[in-house]
C-alpha cells in the first residue's frame, strides 16, 4: 500500500464526509439559486447570476442556520455526556462514571504518558483548557454560526420585506422576530431528536462493525461498550 492510499484509508471517515459536505453544499447553492431566482422572476424582478447568488444573505442564512444547529448538537452532546447517562447505550459512559473522572482515568498531570498531548501533562490552565477543548471549539463555532445566521438573516429578511413593500427592521428587532426563532428552533428540534433517538435506539439495535453500536451479541443492559 503506497503512502497516498494508506493516508486515504486511515483518514477515510473525514475525507468521505468532507467531500460529501462540499458536494452537498454545491447542490444547495445550485438549488437555492434556482429557488431564489424563481421568486425574483415571480415578482417581476431581475434574476441573479450564480456567483452573485453565492454572495447573497439568502444563501448565507440558509447555510449558517444549519451549521449552528449541528455544532450546537455536538457541543451539547460532548458536554452533556460528561454527566448524563443512558443505561444500555454505547453513547453513554458506564453508569458509575458520571462526571469529569479522576486524573488517573483521564491520564492527565502526573498520570500523563509519554505519548500524551503536551498540555495534558501540564498542571495549570493549559490542562484545564485542553481538557475542555473539544466542547469549547464546538461552542465557539456554534456561537459564530448563530451570530452569522442572525446577521445574514436580518439582511435576507429585510430584502424580502422590501420586495413586499414593507419597512426593514433592525438587527435587535430581528432577534425577537418569528423568522429568526422559526429558523433557529426548527433546526434545534431536529438535532435534539436525532441525539435522543440515537441514545435510545442504540440500546436495542446493532450495526455490526460500527463503533457507534455495541457488538451485535452484547446485552441490552451493557452500557458504555462500543463495537
Amino acid at each position: 500500500m503506497n503512502r497516498l492510499t494508506r493516508f486515504a484509508k486511515h483518514n477515510s471517515l473525514t475525507l468521505a464526509f468532507g467531500t460529501g459536505f462540499l458536494l452537498t453544499l454545491v447542490g444547495q447553492a445550485v438549488s437555492g439559486h434556482a429557488d431564489f431566482n424563481n421568486q425574483l422572476v415571480t415578482d417581476g424582478l431581475h434574476p441573479l447570476g450564480f456567483l452573485q447568488y453565492l454572495a447573497t444573505s439568502d444563501f448565507a442564512v440558509d447555510v449558517t442556520e444549519n451549521w449552528q444547529s449541528e455544532y450546537l448538537q455536538f457541543f451539547l452532546y460532548v458536554f452533556g455526556t460528561v454527566w448524563l447517562l443512558q443505561r444500555g447505550s454505547p453513547e453513554s459512559k458506564e453508569l458509575d462514571k458520571a462526571g469529569v473522572e479522576s486524573d488517573r482515568e483521564q491520564k492527565v498531570g502526573d498520570h500523563a504518558g509519554s505519548e500524551s498531548p503536551r498540555w495534558a501533562a501540564d498542571k495549570g490552565w493549559r490542562q484545564t483548557l485542553y481538557s475542555r477543548s473539544l466542547g469549547i471549539v464546538m461552542a465557539v463555532i456554534f456561537t459564530w454560526s448563530w451570530l452569522a445566521q442572525s446577521i445574514a438573516g436580518v439582511a435576507a429578511y429585510n430584502e424580502e420585506h422590501l420586495r413586499q413593500l414593507q419597512a426593514p427592521v433592525s438587527w435587535l428587532q430581528y432577534l425577537g422576530s418569528a423568522d429568526f426563532w422559526n429558523r433557529t428552533l426548527q433546526n434545534w428540534q431536529s438535532e435534539l431528536l436525532a441525539v435522543a433517538s440515537m441514545a435510545i435506539l442504540s440500546v436495542y439495535l446493532r450495526q455490526r462493525g460500527s463503533p457507534e453500536s455495541k457488538p451485535v451479541g452484547a446485552a441490552h443492559t451493557s452500557t458504555g461498550v462500543e463495537g
Binding site: L48, D58, N158, L162
Partner: peptide
Amino acid sequence: EVYGQQAQVVLSTDTLFLSAFPTGWLITA
C-alpha cells in the same frame, strides 16, 4: 436602505421602493 437587490428611499413626503436591474435602480413602487 439597501438590502441585496432591493432598496427603500424615504423622502420628506414620499417613500419609494426600488430594485436593482442591469441598467441600474428602477422604481418598483
